[in-house]
Amino acid sequence: MRYARQILTVAFKDLRSELRTKEAVNASVSFSLVILILFSFAFDPSAESTREFSGGLLWIVFAFAGALILNRSFARELQNDCLDALLASPVPASALFLGKSVANLLLLLAVELVGLPVFLVFYNARIVGSFWTLFGVMALATWGLTVVGTMFSALTVNLRLRELMLPMLVYPLMIPCLMAAIQLTTVLLGEPSLDAGQMVWLRFLVGFDVIFTALAVALVDTVLVG
């Protein structure tokens, strides 16, 4: 109970300070729009074959947009040495981490919900399956990206070249999660529902989330307190 309250306090704090400046969210949204437009030059957006990699396109955009938000997550605490005050408080490092992950999840999902309709319009696509199934896939995959990303935001917070290190370290780790998301999204943009073979991917996504959430929660204290 107390733990949950601590998580929410941290998440709420992060959301409030981000929404007040909107630095990361604005950058993330405009960046994803730019990539969406750039992709239209790389492929013929009106061609029928584009549908086959629409999921991939969308998730590459989300992954890029996510890096901008995740980079800020712990870097935000460096200003005025706020991280010290948080770590000295009785809040466990894992609650701090989960709170930040929740905030990042919500921010990134919001960016995705802006990017998705733009993508559908520009690429003449539509969601053939149910929106809520797609949203579920987005939430699961985004949580995967978020826990890994937030963990590495903590890992790289005191490093030189922080902004460069994060995407370099995080994208290879995210490959399985992105693959599952791409697979499922492509299906949902073209077919009414997931068949048994694709349910395996959904379970895989849940497994990825569970494994990396557990690892991050177990190790974040080691990373933050030296």
Binding site: K13, S17, N80, D81, C82, D84, A88, P90
Partner: peptide
Amino acid sequence: SRIGILGHGIAVYDEL
């Protein structure tokens, strides 16, 4: 929870 710290930085948030 019984410790209070005051370091080099002010450790309060500028946006709040």
